[in-house]
Measured scan of single mutants.
Amino acid sequence: EPLWIRPDAPSRCTWQLGRPASESPHHHTAPAKSPKILPDILKKIGDTPMVRINKIGKKFGLKCELLAKCEFFNAGGSVKDRISLRMIEDAERDGTLKPGDTIIEPTSGNTGIGLALAAAVRGYRCIIVMPEKMSSEKVDVLRALGAEIVRTPTNARFDSPESHVGVAWRLKNEIPNSHILDQYRNASNPLAHYDTTADEILQQCDGKLDMLVASVGTGGTITGIARKLKEKCPGCRIIGVDPEGSILAEPEELNQTEQTTYEVEGIGYDFIPTVLDRTVVDKWFKSNDEEAFTFARMLIAQEGLLCGGSAGSTVAVAVKAAQELQEGQRCVVILPDSVRNYMTKFLSDRWMLQKGFLKEEDLTEKKPWWWHLRVQELGLSAPLTVLPTITCGHTIEILREKGFDQAPVVDEAGVILGMVTLGNMLSSLLAGKVQPSDQVGKVIYKQFKQIRLTDTLGRLSHILEMDHFALVVHEQIQYHSTGKSSQRQMVFGVVTAIDLLNFVAAQERDQK
């Protein structure tokens, strides 16, 4: 057995438009009618409502009807409940999964919650491996369901041993009777949507819809739904939504950006999952974080739909894509998950301010006199920076000697690579993860907040409520011999709460 199987392995699926269902090699399930009293909570997966979006479509000038398939009504709160249950049931049916076995899954959280929910009911041990950027709410729900959680670096490539995929496979090879159901490759993922989600949409719309818009992560949702719609409703256009920084969209030119990270969760990847059939997507749109969270908040405030950030991405694209539809036509959007997962993220004004998705003037509360002053007023001194090749031991000596707790790590040209902190280095040394002679590049981390000289002290204040420091950066445009230009970030300084307090105190003292 291989040590790991690539999540982007070539698909062996034989589905073709027009091929009889009787030739399918898979076990198919028909939607079942729910009894009045459910035998367990797993029976509350599927049969989610279709809700008309009344205000947002009109606000953006849509002539067509805009409908939302509300997947956050599933038992675990997301569309991923469907595939989690289906993968477990299919693994039980073919004898792969037996009582007492362990389920391991690399996930952005929602599939993990679905699997942990099913594992709690069915009696399996469950280990979820997820990147650090995923919300604390997801972690809390997983723990409450009895799952064990392993976190991995957000910026690790999918084929790196440190990625959530790599760590999951390492655990599988170490733990007896453990299984990775593997949402990236498992046919049960798109089949769950082909058999149930798509049929529900067709039934709820009486077979009449002209466009379907869905955000894409593993691709199982859009693949399964689109294949069924292509068979039953061939005139329906399928629109895929991919965040900026991901590479799922086609044509490839759409993916060209210097951005590699994004805040919206559960969609987009740096590889093409095996289950994603991009041939059934008629057109791709890219979405960005700001519009995703703005539209998610709009869905909550104006439509009462308590959905997550990827739902915002989907609707932001839908109001663009559906401009081509006329009166009497219908566009369906998939709202994948609930706001429950993001209470401390985009639902929080403070978080939105820190990330730059909300401006101070958007909030009406009274601010102190210094709130709208610029960061450049602080008069920061030149920063202490270190090269990635310097040793951890030497870096600790320098920081202690100069009285700093942290320093930016830059390359020879001064471009920011990340940050090192005294606390992080000492804990890594004590844990045996690094040696004093190791290069400081081994303990770089990139989960820090950046701020510009033109940003306000109010925004800085919000950042420092949650973080010990902020890195002050400025952009530099560099022209190359080819005539092309590129933008790079340079370090201007490091600012802490002490710097802000000293500035405010000094100004008030001078005024007296």
Score class of each variant (00 low, 15 high):
I238E: 01
V241A: 03
D242G: 01
P243F: 05
E244L: 03
G245Q: 01
G245M: 04
L248H: 07
L248Y: 01
L248F: 05
A249G: 12
P251H: 07
E253V: 12
Q256R: 13
E258I: 11
Q259L: 13
T260G: 15
T261Y: 14
Y262R: 01
E263V: 06
V264G: 01
V264R: 01
E265S: 06
G268H: 01
Y269N: 01
F271D: 01
F271S: 01
V275T: 03
L276S: 04
D277C: 07
T279G: 08
D282L: 07
D282Y: 15
F285V: 15
F285G: 08
N288F: 08
E291W: 09
A292R: 04
A292C: 09
T294Y: 14
T294K: 05
F295D: 01
A296D: 05
R297M: 04
M298I: 12
I300L: 06
I300Y: 06
E303T: 13
A311N: 06
T314L: 01
V315M: 09
A318T: 11
V319I: 10
K320E: 09
A322Y: 03
Q323L: 12
E324W: 06
L325F: 10
E327I: 01
G328Y: 06
Q329Y: 08
Q329S: 03
C331T: 01
V332M: 14
V333T: 14
P336T: 06
F346W: 03
R350I: 07
M352P: 05
L353C: 12
K355W: 09
K355M: 10
G356D: 01
F357V: 05
E361S: 11
E361M: 07
E365Y: 08
K366G: 09
K366S: 10
H372L: 13
E377H: 06
L380R: 12
P383D: 03
L387Y: 09
T389D: 14
I390N: 13
T391L: 08
T391Y: 05
T391G: 01
C392H: 05
E397I: 01
E401R: 05
E401A: 15
K402C: 08
G403F: 07
D405M: 06
D405G: 06
D405N: 01
Q406Y: 07
Q406P: 01
P408M: 01
P408C: 06
V409L: 01
V410L: 11
D411A: 13
D411P: 13
E412M: 07
I416T: 08
G418A: 09
V420P: 01
T421L: 11
M425W: 09
S427L: 09
S427M: 01
L430F: 13
L430G: 01
A431V: 11
G432F: 09
G432L: 12
K433I: 07
Q435T: 15
Q435Y: 15
D438Y: 13
D438C: 09
V440R: 01
Y445M: 06
Y445C: 07
K446T: 15
K446L: 11
Q447L: 11
Q450G: 06
R452M: 14
L453P: 14
L453F: 12
D455E: 15
R459F: 11
S461A: 01
M466V: 12
D467Y: 01
F469L: 10
A470T: 12
A470S: 13
V473G: 11
H474S: 09
H480P: 08
H480A: 13
T482P: 10
G483S: 12
Q487Y: 09
Q489W: 10
V491T: 04
F492D: 11
F492G: 11
F492S: 12
V495S: 12
V495C: 11
T496K: 06
L501F: 08
L501K: 05
A506L: 05
Q507T: 01
E508S: 08
D510L: 09
